[in-house]
Amino acid sequence: MTDTAVHGHDSSTGISNIKLGMWTFLGSECLLFGGLISTYMLYRGRVTGGPRPAQIFDIPFTSVSSFVLLMSSLTMVLAVSAAHKNEHRKTNLWLTVTALLGATFVGGQVYEFTAFYNEGLGFSTSLFGSSFYTLTGFHGVHVTVGIIMLMSLVGIFKRSAVPGKKAEVVEMIGLYWHFVDIVWIIIFTLVYLIPV
């Protein structure tokens, strides 16, 4: 039963409430990550103690994990496509693969943070440290939330008890997942590839 049926008339625009709500939310998220990225850009070169960015960034390693996250967007879109075609097994398969790729990315981030910490970059070491960990940490939390949603979806689908349209739910989580991916596209370029 859709929301429009509940309220007794079709939506004025003919599009679903939840999808419009999701895009509205993503528009808002642009300003959240914009603020975090700007803070990092302002402070990236300000190192009074501890390592500078160029001294600790491991570009090959981060390139691989960026690639992994990028490919998870492909598997996500395949899951959405399968869900629209009502191919339940494929949907579950691609959702699981997406979650695994996401988990690989987060695992890589944990490894990276540990390595940076061991090389002397703590959260309180410098402005660079504070703003770097805050920005990438916020992104990592978003990815983790995405993984939890994906895994929950797989679990729920196994018991086939989804209120609302199944394909739409997959599509919404897909939108969120892709958004997290495009944020990383920006972070990867601005934080890692452009030297201070």
């Binding site: 808002s28 998220e29 300003l31 959240l32 603020g35 975090l36 803070t39 402070y43 300000r46 009074t48 959260f123 309180s124 410098s126 402005l127 440290g129 504070s130 703003s131 805050t134 916020f138």
Partner: peptide
Amino acid sequence: PVITVALFLLSFQRNFGARFFDVAAG
């Protein structure tokens, strides 16, 4: 979301030792 960012920076500074507004750190 803009005030959200600002409040997070403030909380991180007060509770977890971030340096966002620490003039000594530049």
